[in-house]
Amino acid sequence: MADAIVMQNVVKRFGKTTALDGTDLNVLIGEVHGFLGPNGAGKSTAIRVLLGLLRHDSGEVRVLDGDPWNDTVTLHRRLAYVPGDVQLWPNLTGGEIIDVLGRLRGGFDAARKSELCERFALDPHKKSRTYSKGNRQKVALISALVSNVELFLFDEPTSGLDPLMEAEFQEVVRELTAKGRTVLLSSHILAQVESLADRISIIRDGKTVEAGSLDDLRHMSRTSITVPTEQPLDRLATLPGVHGLTSHNGHSQFDVDRISLDSVIRELSTFGVLSLEAKPPTLEQLLLRHYSDQISAETRQVVLGDS
């Protein structure tokens, strides 16, 4: 049993709209798995299916070797969930809510609760209607973290947290993985995913469009090259795998597919290379490439260097 989560070709429809349209997701035990995608791509729907709150129409779903729809209660003893938009009971204090959720889960560590309240700077005595968005988020985070479970499902867990708390969250996640816990992390904060995730899955319109380690994904994608040469590089634009070539005062810039890298570099050497800078694509570039028909041509140009 090396898989914490398996989703295979999962379809979920709400009336006429198809929220999940063949989603695949594979999370290994002990890893932090980044779950990325534009708004409305189906990330939250997928997580709700994993929680057994929604019933999927077809495909296969396994969580901790169980069926989330039928083995709900057994599975929920072993996992914890933090939603992205936390709604709390307005007339209860944060501390009361953490206790109630912890006890309904079957017990929690009170010392851990005070430690986490301290670390996240949460006043548990305030009525939750007086909390800001960030503080509501902290209540949900602490409620999940006080329990001793194997799997954490985080759906944009740090939206509304300040950078200090964000850093604290990353520290907590590292502690969890050090103890062998598994984390599914849906997030829009790419720096967070880049620093925490072992592997990522990118979902768009309910379909998984990319999955693998960050290195794998980079490998499949383009490298940006900036190179000053003795002779103008115009001819290079006709080579397969070269994209967005621009030249200015003998300085040229272009992107090249990983697969064509070798042949392009060989060709490049004939122009008299003076210096060379090659950058792997950032996660942001990777993502925008997948989201790209949703963004303007201008944004594409700026971020991706596409023409």
């Binding site: 009971w89 204090t93 944060g94 501390g95 009361e96 206790d99 006890r103 309904l104 548990p124 005595h125």
Partner: peptide, 25 residues
């Protein structure tokens, strides 16, 4: 708005106790 207790009574941590807490007011 006054500050409240930082801990919940243990009876709320049960579905019946929780239901009563929610319907109390």
């Amino acid at each position: 708005a006054r500050l409240g207790p930082g801990h919940a009574p243990s009876r709320w941590g049960h579905p019946w106790g929780w239901a009563w807490r929610q319907q109390r007011s």
